[in-house]
Each structure stands twice: as structure tokens, then as C-alpha cells.
Amino acid sequence: HPLQYRWALWFFKNDRSRAWQDNLHLVAKVNTVEDFWAMYSHVKLASKLSSGCDYALFKDGIEPMWEDNRNKRGGRWLVSLAKQQRHIELDRLWLETLLCLIGESFEEYNREVCGAVVNIRTKGDKIAVWTSEAENQAGVLHIGHVYKERLGLSSKTIIGYQAHADTAAKSNSLAKNKFVV
């Protein structure tokens, strides 16, 4: 069962003695439903990674960093998790995110999606869907609405979209939300 796109899974392990890019490793590329599950079942669950590690699933040809041409004008829908959610929700939310991507859940705006990242952090884990054009309000909002619904977040939960350019300009990672749903 072929996927619409070929996807690459990346693993980031924080080693402060090395440059950021040297800590980023390509794990595998998949372009069928079957290969996706083979890859997913082969790697550790996100909740089992140590702090400072990330997984990223991106379309083949797009690197999981702001500097990539397909990312630099884009941004991310960010879901910030409370510490206790690692044990009860993180793996479900990350898998749901992956299924949204490979299943092409965002309809006419699937092309806007670049990938998704999960950050494992002591102070609270984060999951984000990255899109390519922060100024494309219709596309960004559609993706945000669908994504929030697929994650099963309550209407009281607000998730925000931040442009990478704004995030990069902030040292404390508290960039302002360009959109919220």
C-alpha cells in the first residue's frame, strides 16, 4: 500500500560536545504502509527515549531544521505536554501525529505539511507539526483544526502556531502564536 510521499525518520540525540547537525541521524525512509509499521515497531517508543532526544518524520528531501528551504518560511503547530503526560498520552499523541502525516489527513493542504517532531524534555515533552508557509492562513488553520480534532484535544485546550522565524529570534523558545485553534 504505497504512501503519497516517501517519509524519512530522523533521530536526534543531544550531545553537547558535538555540533547540532552531527547529533541528527537518519534512521530509515519508508514509502508504504507496511514499511511504516516495520519501522515504527523497530524503534523505541518516544516515551522510552532519554531527555534531550527527538524523533522527526519528514517528507523525503526536507531536513528537520528551520534552515531547510521548505521550512524557513514555515512554522509549527505546537502541542506542549505536562510532565505526567509522558506516561499516559505521549506515545498515543505521537502515533496519531504520524498517522495524520502518512495518511494524508489534511486534504487539499497536505502539500503544506513538511513533517512532525517530538521533543523529549525533562520540563515537558513537545509534539509539533511543521508546515511550509506561515503566511498561508487558510492552509495553516485547516491543518490546525484537523490536527487538534485527531489528537482528541478538548475544545478548552488551545494549541498555537508559531513561525520558525519568530522562534529562531527568541532565545527562550517562547515565540508568540501567529494562530491558535
Binding site: H1, P2, L3, Q4, V33, E34, F36, W37, A38, Y40, S41, E96, L99, I102, G103, E104, S105, E107, N110, R150
Partner: peptide, 20 residues
């Protein structure tokens, strides 16, 4: 055509043995 798969369809493949 576009290859869209809903979550239930994708999940059905999760524990299928790989074809050899």
C-alpha cells in the same frame, strides 16, 4: 490518485506479519 488512508485503515496493518 491521492493516496489517503484513514487511521483505522492504517492501524489494521500494525500487527500484520511482514510478507517475505
Amino acid at each position: 490518485g491521492k493516496k489517503q488512508y484513514d487511521r483505522e485503515f492504517l492501524l489494521d496493518f500494525q500487527f500484520m506479519p511482514a510478507c517475505i
